[in-house]
């Protein structure tokens, strides 16, 4: 039996989150209580989703996905270096991605995460002790991609350079990939009803362009390219930053071998902002941009269902009754 959704939120280490919560959230939830109820989860699920654990319960047998996990033999290894010190939250990458891919409102292939945190000790105290960390986020293009393993219909696979991508002739919208993704990088398109995620703009890269986000970034915080090529910008950056000990990955303990590395410094360490990045079963949520979500103690927004889901529920309600579940059924 699930607990009242009002009491829960989506973060795995729920206890300290619950303590940090203020009454305003409850007020918010009351207003959308019915909607919020769906955002809750059970204690058993909490235990299963501890940091470090993957949704192995969703994985298909290896024969399903062994071939799809194999990148084509093009000699390329696409990867990313994201410089969290440089990003200043202009959202150009995000809007460029929206424009490039006609991403529907309410959904995001790419989102810039905001997190305000005190600056580390020793750096100017007094009134200015907060820093605003802004991190451009998208699919991590894992080498050992749990989304590929979880996909029941064989749509998720690897393309050029190891890009994790979706075959839209097969994708049936099971959403297992979204449930399995430790980074919240997949959304289900509200009309196509298919999984959508970053595809490394291979349609641009193949004709000599950069991914839309990389090309536009005014702070030059995004680097993408072939890690198998030592002379590429991304390889050089990765090597330099590694040598300086300034490179970290997100949720590396999950073992998915993400091909995205973050350039960090004392203020921008991944552990400082990691909790703001959505997790298994979540997608980038538009309310993440509410100023109320920026503060350190506010976890990623999970208390109100994703608007696309609200729309889907409304659509389903309008459909013939055979497909409409009754309240409380389906145990």
């Amino acid at each position: 039996m699930e607990r009242d959704a009002v009491e829960q939120d989506g973060a795995p280490s729920g206890e300290h989150r619950a303590a940090a919560r203020s009454t305003d959230r409850r007020t918010l939830l009351k207003g959308g209580a019915a909607l919020a109820a769906a955002g809750g989860f059970s204690a058993e699920a909490l235990a299963q989703d501890d940091a470090g654990r993957l949704r192995t319960d969703l994985f298909m047998p290896k024969e399903h996905w062994r071939e799809r996990m194999q990148a084509p033999d093009d000699g390329k290894r696409y990867g990313w270096v994201v410089d969290t010190r440089r990003c200043f939250g202009c959202h150009a990458c995000e809007v460029a991605c929206k424009a490039e891919n006609d991403v529907p409102l309410g959904s995001y292939i790419r989102q810039t995460i905001y997190h305000e945190a005190p600056r580390p000790a020793g750096i100017a105290v007094g009134a200015g002790q907060y820093a605003r960390i802004m991190v451009p986020m998208a699919c991590q293009h894992c080498e050992d991609a749990p989304c590929i393993k979880a996909c029941p219909c064989g749509a998720l696979h690897k393309g050029a350079g190891g890009t994790v991508q979706v075959n839209y002739d097969k994708c049936s919208g099971h959403a297992s990939c979204k449930e399995a993704c430790p980074y919240g990088a997949i959304y289900i398109d509200p009309v196509a009803n298919q999984a959508v995620k970053c595809h490394n703009c291979t349609h641009r890269v193949d004709v000599g362009m950069e991914p839309a986000c990389v090309a536009t970034c005014p702070s030059e915080a995004l680097a993408f390219g072939d890690l198998a090529d030592e002379t590429s910008r991304v390889s050089r950056l990765k090597a330099e930053l590694e040598a300086e000990g300034k490179l970290e990955r997100l949720r590396a303990e999950k073992g998915t071998e993400p091909r995205m590395w973050f350039a960090v410094d004392e203020t921008h360490r991944v552990e400082t902002w990691a909790d703001k990045v959505p997790r298994e079963g979540e997608s980038y949520h538009p309310d993440a941009y509410s100023v109320y979500e920026w503060r350190e103690e506010t976890p990623p927004h999970t208390r109100v269902p994703h608007p696309a889901e609200v729309q889907r529920a409304a659509d389903l309600a309008a459909q013939p009754t055979t497909q409409t579940p009754q309240s409380g059924e389906g145990r």
Partner: peptide, 8 residues
């Protein structure tokens, strides 16, 4: 996300 009864 599609627990319609709960949602509404």
């Amino acid at each position: 996300f599609l627990r319609l009864g709960a949602l509404l």
